[in-house]
Design a protein around this nucleic acid. Structure first.
Lengths: 209, 209
DNA sequence: GGTTCTGTTGAACGGGCGTTTAGCATACTG
DNA sequence: CAGTATGCTAAACGCCCGTTCAACAGAACC
């Protein structure tokens, strides 16, 4: 088993994995048959199983690869980890396939993807904590939950990116689309409620709590 | 073909549909075999096909049913449609299955679910427009996109609810969990950035625009 | 009361899938 | 150069799935 990084990647094994990386999110797991994957990679069906043991093994290899790449991309973001402003665009720069696969994996029961999700939350909490201390971000009574939910919303956006694109025309997985989305996201996370509504909403919640 | 509403629902046909409504999001489409669905509904496999023509037909019937129920629930929300504060809790009250199914359907290529998504966006835009006029919500240069993205984030939260629950312990699909989430969502949509960071972020975006 | 219609079953069928296996080049190894 | 891994193919296997079909009980209809 080789290291799952981008260096040694002209091997047939890597070509098969890349084909699966494309097909699983696009067609789903079951419609991506071993035969179709093999054809896309330009090899025989038998070779897929020779390299990965089983179709499930191929899926696990894809999960591991994507998760590892994300961790590497994070380590390259010296400043803010996965919340470095450059992180997302660099991930997309390498390939939208990566982000697309992660979004898909989060909707299947992938242990690898779940672990990465947990790591992202933990890291986001740390970064947010630091930002609060620096006076950049507002504090919270339940910072862990708030951060987890905020991150889930952003990842949820990635999961539903096809719907977003259909309705708004914005493709969140390429740079141009991301540039269009950025000010909108900023607007949303800056708060869209007017202060007086905010107050009455707060009172409503206090009453029902 | 009967009306797909809750009235006439003790029929065998409805029991099969309900079984599928449970199984599709829980196990995925392919692992929910006709035999398993039939067993859960307490009927023979043949009857499933007798009633729905094919397994795909059953899926379409489920899609239609859920979408129709959502529209009915919306019509019952006289005040704010799908953004009436009571809408979500009433949907959950009827059955978490409905919301779970919709979240799942949005991640498959379901035309019905996509159409509902589009309707929800359109309605959200209208409601937001009204709220802006009333001075409750801030305006936007691109209201359609902002609303679509904001709605996608909330639905994305539903799609990723299992991850949210694992990390925060909050089950977004029951009332208690929703009560816990409410103030956090309010906090997020009120804005989590401190004003001075906001200004510098705005400048950064202006520069790169 | 005979006939047709409806809801239902259980067995059987055909196909497509993941997987196995045998074989074959090519490239290392001693 | 013999021997043996390695990367790979083609064909076949067997299972499980969606689907079909023949049959049947009971209700409905005339």
């Amino acid at each position: 088993m080789r290291s799952a990084t981008k260096q040694d990647d002209l091997t047939t094994r890597a070509r098969i994995r890349d084909a699966a990386l494309d097909l699983f999110p696009e067609q789903g797991f079951n419609r991506s048959t071993v035969r179709v994957i093999a054809e896309k990679a330009g090899v025989s069906p038998g070779l897929v199983l020779h390299h990965f043991g089983s179709k499930e093994g191929l899926r696990e290899a894809c999960d591991r690869y994507v998760v590892t790449r994300f961790r590497e991309l994070k380590d390259d973001s010296l400043q803010g980890g996965m919340f470095d402003p450059g992180f997302m665009s660099r991930s997309i720069g390498e390939s939208r396939v990566l982000m697309r696969y992660l979004a898909w994996a989060l909707t299947t029961d992938s242990p690898e993807a779940s672990t990465l999700f947990d790591e992202m939350v933990a890291e986001a909490v740390q970064v947010t904590q630091r930002s609060i201390e620096l006076g950049h971000v507002k504090g919270s009574a339940d910072l862990e939950s708030r951060t987890a939910i905020q991150l889930s919303m952003q990842l949820g956006l990635a999961v539903l990116h096809e719907h977003v694109q259909r309705v708004t025309g914005i493709d969140l997985f390429d740079e141009a689309g991301l540039r269009r989305a950025m000010p909108i996201l900023l607007e949303i996370f800056s708060g869209t409620f007017e202060p007086d509504l905010l107050q009455s909403l707060g009172e409503t919640i206090d009453r029902t709590a």
